[in-house]
């Protein structure tokens, strides 16, 4: 025990009657809350969990560097590859190079979005803090909202420097795709959240054994998500599977804008529809596993 001198001072305090300890909270505050108060309290709880992660990043620059490291490295490697390809075949090569760089940047959004959600949840497990979090009034939907917020923050910190680098080094501006690029970002990060929710559900079900999926799962989807080539390249039997992935529509839309010069809004609409379906399924699975963990007692020793 540190500060024994503090304790002896404290023991003196203990013997004095105190007037500044207020009586315990009463029920009326909770019962009489207006809808506005309820929403404000909910946002505050979400912020509480976001603050926990922001505070961690604020005092650890290596963690910030780690967020930017892979997206920047990817951009540098792919930037040189596309420069080489564009040099080999001016014209079509340059267009293909732009499509490749755009794909790298946009896929990083999905990857970082998914990892940002799942790793923020894992941080709670690693710090053995989930017991405190789950006995607070934080609702599961607020936990999900906080993890989504962290996912957006981590993705922005990780991908924005890579975007700037693509513009400075290779003259590729992702925003030349027009306002639809915001829709692309949103559709991809939403897909990342859906996958991350499924990963989190698996962690709730299988504990630490499922942790590795937080890093690897989205890489397994890459070949079918039409990131670097159109869906038509895939075998016919695989194409319906590919078209059920929201990202495939985003990348088809991106290539349409970059190569064909027209924005395929229908693809963006499909991407959002599929995202809604994926998120609904993922939320259902997450809640089932969360309640299952409460039945099995897994919340008591998750991560051990």
């Amino acid at each position: 025990m540190g500060a024994p001198d503090d304790r002896s001072e404290g023991r003196g305090d203990l013997n004095r009657p105190r007037r500044d300890i207020r009586r315990v909270s009463d029920t009326r505050g909770e019962l009489n809350r207006s809808r506005h108060d309820t929403l404000r309290a909910s946002l505050r709880r979400i912020w509480g969990l976001v603050y926990r992660h922001v505070a961690l990043y604020r005092r650890s620059w290596p963690r910030l560097v780690e967020l930017m490291y892979w997206p920047i490295l990817q951009m540098v490697v792919w930037g040189f590859i596309t420069t080489y390809v564009a040099g080999m075949q001016p014209g079509t090569g340059a267009v293909a190079a732009g499509a490749l760089l755009g794909a790298v940047l946009l896929w990083e959004i999905a990857l970082r979005g998914q990892m940002g959600f799942a790793l923020s949840f894992l941080e709670e497990i690693w710090s053995r803090n989930l017991g405190h979090v789950f006995v607070s009034p934080l609702r599961p939907r607020e936990l999900v909202a906080a993890l989504m917020t962290m996912s957006v923050i981590r993705t922005a910190v990780g991908v924005v420097p890579a975007m700037l680098l693509a513009w400075l080094l290779y003259g590729f501006g992702i925003f030349t795709l027009g306002p639809a690029v915001v829709g692309f970002f949103a559709a991809l990060i939403m897909m990342g959240w859906a996958v991350a929710m499924l990963v989190t559900a698996l962690i709730l079900r299988h504990g630490a054994g499922a942790e590795a999926l937080a890093w690897s799962v989205l890489f397994g989807i890459t070949p079918f998500a039409a990131v670097f080539y159109p869906v038509s390249v895939l075998p016919a039997w695989l194409q319906p599977f590919s078209l059920a992935i929201p990202a495939a529509h985003v990348f088809e839309g991106m290539r349409g804008a970059l190569i064909g010069g027209h924005m395929a809004w229908d693809h963006l609409a499909y991407a959002f529809l599929l995202d809604a379906a994926w998120l609904a399924v993922a939320a259902w699975v997450f809640m089932r596993q969360f309640e299952g963990a409460r039945v099995r007692g897994a919340l008591l020793n998750i991560g051990e």
Partner: peptide, 15 residues
């Protein structure tokens, strides 16, 4: 890794 004050702040928000 968080300071005592930061930890207490988190729970003040959660509650």
């Amino acid at each position: 890794r968080l300071s005592v004050a930061e930890n207490l702040r988190i729970y003040a928000h959660l509650y």
